[in-house]
């Protein structure tokens, strides 16, 4: 298992409030990792930094064999390098059909000229169909994604994430607002994905985390509080204190 992403000594403050404080984090490939922490622990900011949305004040973030520094890349370059992100609130392009959404996400040349000349080949349609099958939206391919239910939108976004074929998936609360059956399916997809790539899941729901059955990182006040199996971290005094209060 090689180290895919290495974040070290990253700090970021907003108006004096330290959202991330000397945070270090590593993940290998393939690996599944759950990140938990109370509100304001810096989970979202952490993802923002990795995906290029926020520039940290200091620190390093190195990705892949070629040791690319993520901090000097734009969001789109980072995404092209192989980091995919699913947002907490499902954000799909509601004006467009499910198929269009997936087709857009499909791993292809992203330059404007190539996209302008792109016309979907049989393989592409097949890839879209396969993804749709995986996320259970085969019957909805022609529908506008704005017409989908909340859960379906979550699925579609996971599907778009998979379509990008990223090496590192950052998934923010994937199970929010899903039925137990849907959660189970989501778990399956994530576990399946983690067999070939790195997956970081941010989640509040301990039951869901337990089901992922993976290493857990606990964030608190912008830095790593504890790391290890779920049983290990939940036994940790400090984690209990943070979660249950003093």
């Amino acid at each position: 298992m090689n180290t895919l992403l290495e974040v070290s000594g990253v700090s970021k403050s907003f108006d004096g409030f330290k959202a991330i404080n000397n945070l270090s984090f590593q993940i290998g490939e393939p690996e599944m990792r759950a990140v938990i922490g109370p509100n304001g622990a810096g989970k979202t900011t952490f993802m923002d930094i990795i995906t290029g949305k926020t520039r940290p004040d200091e620190g390093r973030a190195i990705f892949g064999e070629k040791s690319m520094s993520l901090l000097s890349m734009t969001e789109s370059q980072i995404a092209q390098a192989g980091i995919g992100r699913k947002f907490q609130r499902p954000t799909v392009f509601e004006d467009q059909s499910v198929a269009d959404n997936l087709m857009m996400a499909l791993k292809k040349d992203r330059s404007p000229w190539a996209v302008l000349r792109f016309r979907p080949a049989r393989d592409d349609h097949a890839a879209v169909a396969r993804l749709a099958d995986e996320i259970g939206l085969t019957d909805q391919l022609d529908r506008k994604s704005g017409e989908l239910s909340h859960g379906q939108k979550q699925w579609l976004e996971i599907g778009m994430l998979l379509a990008q074929d990223p090496r590192l998936l950052l998934v923010d609360e994937p199970a929010a607002g899903m039925t137990p059956a849907e959660r189970e399916h989501t778990t399956d997809i994530l576990v399946q994905a983690a067999k070939t790539r790195a997956v970081v899941v941010v989640e509040h729901d301990m039951e869901f985390v337990r089901r992922l059955n993976c290493k857990v990182t606990v964030l608190h006040e912008g830095s790593v509080l504890a790391e290890g199996s779920l049983d290990h971290v939940t036994a940790d005094e400090r984690v209990i204190e943070v979660y249950l209060g003093r």
Partner: peptide, 28 residues
Amino acid sequence: SGKFGSVIRAIRDDEARVRFLGYSVEAY
């Protein structure tokens, strides 16, 4: 009509999301 149209309409609706899909919004 094609994927380019999809991308630019996506940029219109949510350009940040398009960036995370790996498209260089500025270039489009």
